[in-house]
């Protein structure tokens, strides 16, 4: 009988407050190292967790008591991260998809988003580090962002 391959699954729900994000990113980084992923892979993943969870808090948790759900599936050759927040509206889906998945402004990321004060740097970092990003808003206005990272052979 063949044994079905199952991922390690980590699921965390936390209040919509940025102070929780640092604990989540550090935890995931440590878990990845414990699962034989390299320190570099763990660091890059930590950055992604930080950016997508921070965005979920900033833009998806404006209501009092709102929370973020974070899930990470760890496979031998890749990981999947899923973040859900309650701040979506189906009217925003096109705008959100463009912001998350499409290449952004030209000349040196518009002089690095006007020297750092215009935002948008986080998404650019996620785009560069992730293999794929997908975004969705469901009928209950839950926004979800799924990011996949594949283990690389070049020392990552």
């Amino acid at each position: 009988m063949s044994e079905e391959l199952r991922p390690q699954r980590f699921q965390i729900s936390f209040p919509g407050d940025l102070e929780y994000v640092s604990s989540v990113r550090k935890l995931i980084s440590e878990v990845l190292v414990s699962q034989q992923y390299s320190h570099k892979f763990a660091y890059r993943s930590e950055v992604i967790v930080d950016e997508i969870c921070s965005n979920a808090v900033k833009y998806g948790c404006r209501a009092v008591g709102a929370s973020v759900n974070f899930e990470c599936l760890i496979w031998p050759d890749h990981i999947e991260m899923l973040v859900k927040d309650p701040g979506g509206s189906s009217n925003d889906i096109s705008k959100l998809r463009n912001a998350v998945t499409e290449a952004q402004p030209g000349p040196e990321l518009r002089r690095v988003q006007e020297a750092g004060l215009n935002g948008g740097l986080g998404l650019e970092i996620v785009r560069m580090l992730a293999e794929s990003i997908d975004v969705n808003i469901d009928e209950n206005n839950i926004t979800s962002i799924r990011v996949v990272r594949r283990r690389e052979e070049t020392g990552e």
């Binding site: 950055v47 921070s54 750092g116 740097l121 986080g122 650019e124 970092i125």
Partner: peptide, 9 residues
């Protein structure tokens, strides 16, 4: 992270 980088700039 990106917030920190923004502030360095």
């Amino acid at each position: 992270n990106s917030t920190g980088l923004g502030i360095l700039l």
